[in-house]
Computed example of a mutant assay.
Amino acid sequence: MQNLASTLEVEFGRGFSYRQLAFCRQFYRTYTKEDASKVIAYQLKKLITMNERSHNYERTQS
Rank of each mutant, 00 (worst) to 15 (best):
S62F: 04
G15S: 06
S6N: 15
Q26S: 09
Q43A: 09
F16D: 06
I48E: 15
S54L: 11
F12W: 15
N51M: 11
Y31C: 05
G13I: 08
S37L: 12
T7Q: 13
I40V: 15
N3L: 07
Y28N: 11
M1L: 09
Q20V: 04
S62T: 11
S54T: 14
Y57G: 00
R53W: 06
Q2F: 02
T60L: 12
L4G: 01
K33S: 09
F12S: 05
I40E: 05
R29I: 02
R25H: 13
V39Q: 07
L44Q: 10
K45Y: 06
N51G: 05
I48R: 13
L44Y: 07
Y57I: 02
V10N: 08
L21W: 02
Y28T: 11
R14Q: 13
Q26A: 07
V10G: 04
A5R: 01
Y57C: 01
H55P: 00
L21I: 12
F27Y: 14
R59V: 12
H55Q: 14
Y42C: 04
S37G: 12
N56G: 03
C24V: 00
S6I: 15
D35E: 14
N51V: 04
A5T: 00
T30A: 06
A36F: 05
M50W: 05
E11M: 10
L44W: 01
T32F: 05
G15E: 08
K45N: 10
L47P: 01
E52K: 15
L47E: 14
T49F: 09
Q2Y: 04
E34L: 08
L4A: 08
T32P: 01
T30H: 15
S6G: 11
F27N: 03
F23N: 13
F12G: 01
Y31F: 15
R59Y: 03
Q26V: 07
F23M: 06
E9N: 09
Y18H: 11
L4P: 02
Y57N: 09
K33A: 07
Y57K: 08
A22G: 07
Q43G: 00
A41H: 11
K33M: 08
K33W: 09
L47Y: 14
V10W: 04
Q43S: 05
L44I: 15
T32A: 05
H55M: 08
N51D: 06
R14M: 10
L8C: 03
T32H: 06
D35V: 00
S37I: 09
E58L: 10
T7R: 13
Q2P: 00
A36V: 05
E9I: 00
H55K: 12
A36H: 07
E11F: 04
Y31T: 01
I40H: 03
K38W: 06
T49K: 13
E52V: 08
Y18N: 07
L44R: 12
